[in-house]
Amino acid sequence: MIEFQIENDTTEPLGKIHGRVTWTPEKEVTPKALIVSLMWRTEGRGSEAKDTVAEVRQTPGPVFAGDPFEMEFEFEIPEEGPVTYNGKLIRVIWEVHFRADIPWAWDVTDATLITVEPRLVAR
């Protein structure tokens, strides 16, 4: 089971996203890496464009069944965005993505949506 806790799921370019992911494995595994990434992608009529903006990685060693493992993260949205958009042909979606890279098995993945609003806070 994967659970995301994000303090602010709506932000803007140059804004920050803080939070934590809790992964409770169903059996004992030794993942090669646990990766939390901030990414955007497009949906709609056009071919998909996507990019991973930033990521945090951890190599925790063995993780035991039913024993929750937590990873904290803090990401900054780039100034140039893109911002979240829901148009007629194009949608731009931002998400925080978790992946447990497990050797010789399917990776465990999940994602949660965040919103990047089109405003730029003057600094």
Partner: peptide, 14 residues
């Protein structure tokens, strides 16, 4: 935890 910048797409605006 500090995030690593992994951006491949540098151009977002025309």
């Amino acid at each position: 935890m500090i995030a690593t910048d992994t951006r491949k797409v540098k151009e977002i605006l025309p």
